[in-house]
Amino acid sequence: MKSLMRLFRSEPNIAEPLYAEVVAKARSPHWYVAGRVPDTMEGRFSVLATLLALTDLRLETGGDEARKASVGLAEAFVHDMDSQLRQDGVGDPVMGKRVGSLVGALGGRLGAWRKATGGEESWEAVAGRSLYRENIPSDESLAHSVDELKRYWHALQGRSDEALIGGVLP
């Protein structure tokens, strides 16, 4: 009976506090005011996916618990997107396709930010695609967003795995 109970009990996601903090960072008004990212569902998704990609890249360089949290961060994202889409009235027949598309968008950003953080592509070019889909409102807004993303990235580098997993973000 105990083994049957374990089958239906889910382990808590260690990345939930981290995911909640990344969501809070993505809601910061400066992205939409000074950065002029469109304050729409798509614009908010772009900021969230961008911050998640940078956070995940940092987790990939950490120890075993950080890499485990990387998986948990992706799971929290999928769960959140599923919930959001259901609230918006998306039904089961198309849910998998819609969530898969959002996960693909996150994966694309991960690859792009890997290039930017590795020096293979400019932060400006990647931010232009990641946040604005190349419809950059002004040089000033792009500069603001790039500065904030660099600040976030460098601060992530200074966080211990334990602090990061616990949701202590810059």
Rank of each mutant, 00 (worst) to 15 (best):
A112C: 05
P17G: 15
R159Y: 03
E60P: 12
K150A: 06
T117K: 00
S3C: 12
L52E: 08
Q157I: 08
L156W: 04
P170L: 04
H144E: 06
S28Q: 10
R36C: 12
V168N: 04
A127W: 01
A127K: 05
G166L: 07
G128Q: 02
L48R: 07
P137M: 15
D161T: 04
G158V: 13
N13W: 05
R109L: 00
L106W: 04
G89K: 08
K150N: 03
L18G: 05
R9A: 15
S138P: 05
A112Y: 09
L57D: 07
W31K: 06
A74D: 08
A163Y: 12
V33A: 14
A143H: 01
L4I: 14
D147W: 03
K2R: 14
L142K: 06
S160M: 06
K150C: 04
E134K: 13
Y152R: 08
G63R: 07
L102N: 10
R114A: 07
D39P: 01
G128M: 05
A24C: 04
T117W: 00
G62V: 07
Y32T: 03
S46C: 10
P29C: 00
R58P: 13
Y19K: 07
P38Y: 01
V99Q: 03
G166M: 11
W113Q: 01
D92S: 14
V103F: 05
R58H: 13
D56H: 15
S141G: 10
V146M: 02
D161G: 11
G167M: 07
G107V: 14
G91V: 14
L169Q: 02
R67Q: 15
D147G: 14
E134V: 10
S122A: 08
K2C: 14
L48N: 07
A26W: 04
P17K: 11
G72K: 01
Y132D: 01
G43V: 13
R129L: 00
I165E: 01
L85Y: 09
S122C: 11
T61E: 12
R114S: 10
A143E: 12
V168S: 04
D92R: 12
L18C: 08
Y132M: 03
P17T: 14
Y19L: 11
E11I: 04
V168F: 02
S46H: 10
A125V: 09
